[in-house]
Computed example of a mutant assay.
Amino acid sequence: MSMNLTLNNGIEMPALGFGVFQTPPETTSSSVAAALRVGYRLIDTAASYFNEREVGEGIRRSGLDRSEVFIETKLWISDYGYDEALHAFDKSAGKLGVEQIDLLLLHQPLTTDFGRTVGAYKALETLLTDGRVRAIGVSNFMPGDLAVLLEQTDVVPAVNQVEVHPYFTQPEVQKANAEHGVLTQAWSPMGGITSYRGDSDRSTFNDPVIGEIADVHGKTPAQVMLRWHVQEGRSAIPKSVNPERIASNFDVFDFELSTAQLGAIDALNTGVRGGPDPVSVTLEAFHRDIPEA
């Protein structure tokens, strides 16, 4: 099982990455450095997480050469539109302290003004042509959003980062992605979002099906869930600020789930979304000023 995935433009990306959603800036750089120490080589952040600067610091602190770390970030809806998105790239690259970003995504479809979404994506295409990014993509795009985007743009997204975990697998989204050659990347890949939204008694971490599979392999439920993603061909970006869990989450390449075990995890899908419905993400409700520095 390869630790890398090949994107639709030939670029290689690690299957397992390290996410920093809701990681406070003051702990981000140390968490990133810890992740890189244990072997992660993909770091995922976003302009709207307000910790890109600290991600850059963590990468530099690791002592690794820039070429060894795959940096992924996302532009927020407040910076959509062609010129705005070009400027947003400059803001993100400046905070990260890099000249080139490996993978740049649009964080959400702005369904109430899809023209601005298309304009922002065309800016990503320009950045790709200019070599300022190595791959481009989207996040939280439903099949309809993807279809409209493809009609109006030239470059098929390399990645669509969406909520995927055992309790919410979005099979129709994964199918649409696959049909277009778009890699599905899972945010909240272990269903952490289910632990603090909705029924806290029903968590993926204490699910009996996942627990039983974990016992068979002598692994943790978290490791089983991450292995499930890797074996099904997805990228996953778990987050943690705990050094032991950061290391444990990366230790998923020495065992294999059976076809029956993969199917048992697939069958846990409830169809209930943990994050916001992409249609509800409007500028009125979700505007965030992304600072210059």
Results as ranks from 00 to 15, higher is better:
L42Y: 02
V272Q: 14
F168C: 15
K219Y: 04
P221G: 04
G19I: 10
A264S: 15
R132M: 07
K74W: 05
Q231Y: 12
Y49W: 07
G131T: 05
A293G: 12
P109C: 09
T23H: 13
S92P: 01
I71N: 04
A222T: 11
A35F: 13
I193C: 07
A88T: 00
D83T: 07
L262M: 13
T129H: 13
N9M: 07
F168R: 06
V279R: 13
P166A: 12
S2P: 14
P208W: 05
W76C: 02
R60W: 01
P243L: 12
G81Q: 04
I265E: 15
N249P: 10
A33G: 09
T73G: 02
V182R: 10
G10F: 06
T28I: 09
A236F: 07
N4E: 15
I43Y: 04
E68L: 02
G119V: 00
V133T: 01
A34K: 12
D102S: 05
G198K: 00
A47R: 03
Q223K: 05
Q174T: 14
S62N: 06
D266A: 14
R53D: 05
V164E: 11
L42W: 04
G192H: 08
V118W: 05
D207A: 08
F70A: 05
D83C: 01
G56T: 04
E284S: 14
D154E: 14
A236Y: 07
E72A: 06
H217D: 07
L124D: 06
L127V: 03
V164S: 15
Q108G: 00
Q108R: 12
G198V: 00
L149F: 03
E54M: 07
T153H: 11
D44F: 05
L146F: 05
I136S: 04
I193E: 10
Q170H: 13
E72L: 03
E72F: 01
K219A: 11
L146S: 10
L127C: 03
V281Y: 04
A15V: 12
P171I: 13
F253R: 08
L103R: 00
Y82Q: 06
N51Y: 04
Q185I: 08
D83W: 01
P24N: 11
T111W: 14
I213Y: 08
H217L: 06
Q185H: 09
T45C: 02
A88V: 03
V156H: 05
D207E: 08
G39Y: 11
H180G: 09
P166T: 10
T129E: 13
L103E: 02
E12L: 10
I237M: 12
